[in-house]
């Protein structure tokens, strides 16, 4: 699985004028790669992810996908910011939803869903409804729902954005563990620099609106990673470099002079 964004542009019609959200975004991502995108609020990160998912159409440019035959199966699974679990389905039915849409028979899909739910330790909540779970649990269900379909491409839109720092840290570890077993291509959107560096092989930095990619940084950390270990000096250096870029963009978007 490999994809390439070629000169992607997206603008939205508002009542008065056209608002440009993305401006000529180009990058490629390869199989087994974990790519993060960081950028200031409203820079079009989510829009970019939805373009890659094919949920919306670009105004100009294209997303080129290359992969084996998948017989009409969606190539990608999307993890949403606010988990997006259906309140009218149990945890198990939510997790099995992707398989259901692929036409997997009920017995098999529930079995596969249950196996995944148990792997993240939520077995006893399988028959609960989402609102009976804590926010952290809900987001884990949202992530598992994507993994169970075994997508070649996994698109994650700030999945930990709504969580407290401790929960966030634990779930980052859990995500890396799950990903280590599947090694799908992941595109991970966040505005947390720390998170982007810890998780990724490569970090793309975006400018403010209209969003475009202003820097690409490879993260020289070994896999598997131990999130509990102290970070090497070069990682601090990388974070500093990303922050300096972002600071300029955030200041510009807030119209704060230097």
């Amino acid at each position: 699985m490999r994809f390439e964004c070629q000169e992607l542009c997206k603008s939205f019609d508002s009542s008065h004028s056209e608002i440009s959200a993305l401006d000529r975004v180009s990058f490629a991502a390869d199989d087994h790669e974990f790519v993060s995108i960081v950028g200031p609020s409203g820079c079009g990160k989510t829009t970019l992810l939805k373009l890659i998912a094919g949920l919306i159409e670009p105004t100009a440019g294209r997303v080129q996908m290359s992969n084996g035959a998948l017989r009409g199966r969606p190539r990608s699974a999307f993890v949403f910011q606010d988990h997006g679990l259906f309140p009218w389905m149990t945890v198990l039915d939510n997790v099995a939803f992707g398989l259901e849409m692929q036409g997997v028979a009920q017995g098999e899909r529930l079995e596969r869903a249950r196996a995944f739910v148990e792997r993240v330790g939520l077995g006893q909540f399988a028959d609960h409804y989402p609102h009976q779970l804590s926010t952290g649990m809900q987001q884990r269900v949202g992530i598992v729902r994507a993994f169970v379909t075994e997508p070649p491409l996994l698109l994650m839109d700030e999945p930990f954005g709504a969580l407290d720092p401790q929960t966030r840290r634990v779930l980052q570890g859990e995500l890396l563990r799950l990903w280590g077993e599947h090694r799908n291509l992941v595109v991970f959107v966040t505005h947390d620099i720390d998170e982007a560096v810890r998780l990724s092989d490569r970090v793309l930095v975006m400018t403010g609106r209209p969003g475009s990619i202003c820097d690409t940084i490879d993260i020289p950390l070994e896999r598997p990673r131990d999130l509990a270990s102290r970070e090497p000096a070069e990682v601090s250096e990388i974070k500093w470099r990303i922050w300096k870029q972002l600071e300029r963009e955030v200041r510009a978007s807030l119209a704060i002079a230097r």
């Binding site: 949920l55 699974a77 999307f78 939803f97 849409m101």
Partner: peptide, 24 residues
């Protein structure tokens, strides 16, 4: 969001109705 989630997993009009519009 629920329509987006369903569509992202490949739901067609029938499934959108059955799994989102109706229970929602």
């Amino acid at each position: 969001t629920y329509f987006e989630v369903a569509r992202s997993y490949g739901a067609g009009p029938l499934n959108l109705f059955r799994r989102v519009v109706w229970p929602g």
